[in-house]
Simulated assay, not measured.
Amino acid sequence: MSPDTHRDSCAEHRIGLVLASASPRRRELLQQIGVRFSVMPVDICEDVHPGENPAAYVARLAKEKAEAGLAHSDAAAVLGSDTSVVMSGQILGKPVDADDAERMLMSLSGSNHEVMTGVALATAQETQVCVVTTVVHFKELSPETCRAYWQSGEPHDKAGAYGIQGLGAVFVDRIEGSYSSVVGLPLAETAEMLIKAGIPIWQPE
């Protein structure tokens, strides 16, 4: 078998798209636009680098996840994504306890903040990267509401201590930008990346 024939044979046996995330929300969003994919979460360090701004941070993490997935799989393409809630230039991570969640939510109360999602699609040819920023306007919250919301369990694993796709939707007065990006994956931009890489969307089951 010639080297070219061997490469062609390997390419034929490569699996298609892999999502480098364990997030059920990202899985649901990809399914929403008819994309066929497999799931393979990757483990990378998510520490913020000194002097790194939030947009650069989510872009870097998305790229590292996608490229790590590509390096450790037989996928033709790997999609990585990372979402951060940003208030006054500061990244709000996942709350460590009820007091931390209340602190975060009260800082968002009656104001607006940014949700930044980085998306990266890695193939053997290139890695596409983009960052989508959505402005989210919050209603006024009370400490009692924040504590009751914590008891629901929903904010425990959510950046910024809320989920717009769940019970936390009642806190949101309005948004400016992409709703799906706030959930975890900006669909319009992701679809553009997939199409550019030759990965079809709108596929029937």
Rank of each mutant, 00 (worst) to 15 (best):
V48W: 00
V48M: 13
H49V: 00
H49L: 15
G51D: 08
G51N: 10
E52N: 02
N53V: 14
N53I: 12
P54S: 05
P54T: 02
A55N: 12
A56D: 13
A56Y: 00
Y57N: 05
Y57F: 15
Y57Q: 03
Y57K: 09
A59P: 02
A59S: 11
R60G: 02
L61I: 14
A62I: 13
E64F: 01
K65I: 05
K65G: 05
K65M: 10
A66Y: 07
A66L: 09
A68F: 05
A68I: 04
A68G: 08
A68Q: 15
G69R: 09
G69S: 10
L70W: 10
L70F: 11
L70R: 13
A71T: 12
A71C: 12
H72A: 11
H72F: 06
H72S: 15
D74P: 11
A75M: 10
A77H: 09
L79I: 13
L79A: 06
L79W: 11
G80P: 03
S81W: 10
S81Q: 13
S81Y: 10
S81G: 15
S81K: 12
D82E: 13
T83E: 03
T83N: 07
S84I: 08
S84Y: 03
S84H: 06
S84N: 08
V85H: 00
V85D: 00
V85Y: 00
S88R: 15
S88G: 09
G89N: 12
G89K: 10
G89L: 06
G89H: 06
I91Y: 06
I91N: 05
I91K: 04
L92A: 04
L92W: 08
L92N: 02
L92V: 05
G93Q: 15
G93R: 14
G93V: 07
K94I: 05
K94D: 07
K94H: 04
P95C: 07
P95W: 07
V96I: 14
V96Y: 06
V96L: 14
V96G: 14
D97M: 06
A98N: 08
D99V: 06
D99F: 03
D99G: 13
D99L: 11
D100T: 09
D100A: 10
A101K: 04
A101F: 08
E102F: 00
E102K: 06
R103V: 00
R103K: 12
R103W: 05
R103G: 01
M104S: 06
L105R: 05
L105S: 03
L105C: 05
M106I: 03
M106S: 02
S107Q: 13
S107L: 10
S107Y: 01
S107C: 07
L108D: 00
S109P: 04
S109K: 13
G110D: 05
G110N: 07
G110E: 08
S111A: 12
N112I: 00
N112G: 00
H113V: 01
E114N: 03
E114K: 00
E114V: 01
E114F: 01
E114M: 00
V115Y: 04
